[in-house]
Design a protein around this nucleic acid. Sequence first.
DNA 1: TTGTACGCGTTATCAA
DNA 2: TTGATAACGCGTACAA
Lengths: 325, 325
Amino acid sequence: MSEDTRQRILAVAAELGYDGPDPRARSLRRGRSGVIGVVLDDRLSDAFRDPVNVLTLDGIAEVAGAAGVSLLLVRSPLDDERGMAPLVDAPMDAVILIGCNVRIDPAVAVLRRRAIPVVAIEADVIEGAVPIHLDNRDASHRAAAYLRELGHRAVTVVALPLDSSRERGPVDAARERSSTAFTTMERLRGVREVYPSAPAVVTTGSSVEEGRIAGAALFAPGVAAPTAVVAQSDLLAVGVISAALEAGLRVPEDVSVVGFDGIHVDDSLLHRSPIRQLTTLVQPFVPKGEAAARAALAMLEGEAPEPASFRSELRIGDTTAPPRG
Amino acid sequence: MSEDTRQRILAVAAELGYDGPDPRARSLRRGRSGVIGVVLDDRLSDAFRDPVNVLTLDGIAEVAGAAGVSLLLVRSPLDDERGMAPLVDAPMDAVILIGCNVRIDPAVAVLRRRAIPVVAIEADVIEGAVPIHLDNRDASHRAAAYLRELGHRAVTVVALPLDSSRERGPVDAARERSSTAFTTMERLRGVREVYPSAPAVVTTGSSVEEGRIAGAALFAPGVAAPTAVVAQSDLLAVGVISAALEAGLRVPEDVSVVGFDGIHVDDSLLHRSPIRQLTTLVQPFVPKGEAAARAALAMLEGEAPEPASFRSELRIGDTTAPPRG
DNA sequence: TTGTACGCGTTATCAA
DNA sequence: TTGATAACGCGTACAA
C-alpha cells in the first residue's frame, strides 16, 4: 500500500484507540489459537510438587516455546460430567496428556470430533491419540530381575494410585481389574513377571509422605517384612526408606529398596544415613516431553505425527544388596 | 421449550455431528476465555527449574483451579517488538506477572488499553497494575544488619540479573542506574542501607551453577575475599558455599553466607559439609501466589482488586557466624 | 414457545 | 493497490 494511505490508516486507528487485532476474534476466524493444552492428572498445585511432571513440562515447554506456542495448564477432567468443562471450554489447538490415570475417554472423544490432535504420554492405547511410550513394564521387569539375582524372595510393591478414587491399602484382584491407571499397572505387571505373587500396596499419590505411610505399615512390628521393596516412584522410595530407618532397619542390609524415575532426590532423612544414591530406573523425562510437543506441533501442521518410545535405565545405587542370611 | 422440540433438536444436532459450543466462538461472543495468563521471565524450561517460580505457580494454581480458570504460561516478551506476539496474541482474561525483570511496559500498555487486568508480583510500580508486594528491601536490610551485628565488615552481594542482557560481572554505578530488575535492585538497596559501599557481582540467573561461578571469582587466590556474602537467592547461596568449600574455606568459620527465599535446598556438596540449614530470608511463596490469583479473579468480576504485601522472615541457620579474628 | 436476524472482530476473497 | 463483502459460531434480543 502507499505510504500515504498507510499513514492515514494509522492515524485513524490511533484516534479510535485501536490496539491491534483481538486474539479472540483472530482465533475464531483462523481456527487457531496458538495454544497447546497440557492435561495433568492432579490438582495443579499437587502436580507442581512432583518433579516428574515438572521435568516433563520442561521438555514440552522447550519445544513449544521455540515454536511460539503457549502452554495451557488444565486439570484432568473429573469423572463428573461438569468437570469436563475446562477441557472443553478452553481454546486449544492440540492437547498433551501427561500421566493420566483417570479414564478420560469421554473427554478425548470430544476432542477427536473437534479434530483437536491428542498426544498421550504413557497412556493406554487411546483411539486417535498419538502415543509417547515408556518401557514401564520391561523396566520394572529388569529391576525385579535384579532383585532376584541378589537373592530376594519376599518382595512387595508400593504402587502409585490405581484409579481416581485413590484409596490407600493393599491391592487385591478386584481392584487390579478395575484399575484405570495404565502406568501403575504396567509397572506392577513388570514386577509380577518375575515375582508372580508379589503383594502390592497402593498409595494416594507420588510423594515422600505417602511412601512413608506405606513403609510404616510394611515394617510394623509383628508383621513379616519384605526383604525388598519395589517403589513405583523415587518419591515413594524415599518415603519407604525413611520408614525403614525409623523402624530400626538398615538399608540396604535389612531391606533393599528400588525406585522409579531417576529424579534428583532430596531428603534430609536420607542424608543422616550413609545412603548416597537410590537404586532406580532412570527415565528420560525431558526428551519424552520434547517428543510429545513435537508430535503435537506436527499434527497442527497437518503432518504425520511421530509416535515415540523411550527406555529407562536401571541405575544401581546403594539402596540394594543381597538379603540377610 | 417442549420436550418434543428438545428431542428434535438433539437428534438433528447429533446427526450433524455437533460437539457442543466452540470455545473460540464462545469466547469471542462473551468476551471471556476462562484463562489467566502467567508471564514468566525466563524461558519456560528455565523457569521450571527455579523453585521460586514453581512455588508461586503453586499458589496461583490453587486459587485459579478452584475458580475453574486455566493457566496460560507465557514467556515474558523480549525487547524485540515481534517477541511481544505471544503475549498479545494469546486469549487471556487477566495477566499475572511473576518476577519480571525485563521492562515490559509496552506490553502492559497494550493490555491496559484492552482492559485486561494486570497483577504484578514484586514489580516496580506499574501504572494500572495491581501490585503484590514483598519486603525485598527491608528484608535484605535486616539480613545485612544481622551480619553487621556479627561483626562483618567486608560484605559482597551476589546479585540476580540486573536486566535482560544478563551479563555476568561486577556491578558498577552505570549498570546499576540502567537496571530494569526491580527485585534485584531492592534487595541490593537493602544491603547498601547497612553497607553503603558493599561491592556486588551480578549473575545471569538464579542457579547453583551461577552461584558457584560468582563464588569462584570471589574466593580466587590473590583476591581479598569478603568475610560474608549476601546471595540474592538460595540457589545462588548454595553455589557460593560450594565454591567456598572448593577453595578450601570453611563455612561459616571463614566466610558467612546468607541466602534469600527459604526454599527446600538440596545439594550434595552441602551434605558433605556439616552445614544443615542455610541462613536465609524465608518468603511466603504460596500465599503470595494465592493473593495474586485472587486479585486477578476479583478484577475479572469487576470488583476492586486487593493489593497485598508480604513479609520475609530471617531464619538463622548455620552458614553465618562472626568473622575470624 | 419458537423462529429469525444481528453483531462480536477478524481474515479471505473478489471486484474495481 | 484499494475497497467492499462474506463468513467463522455463538449469544441475545426481538418478533411472530
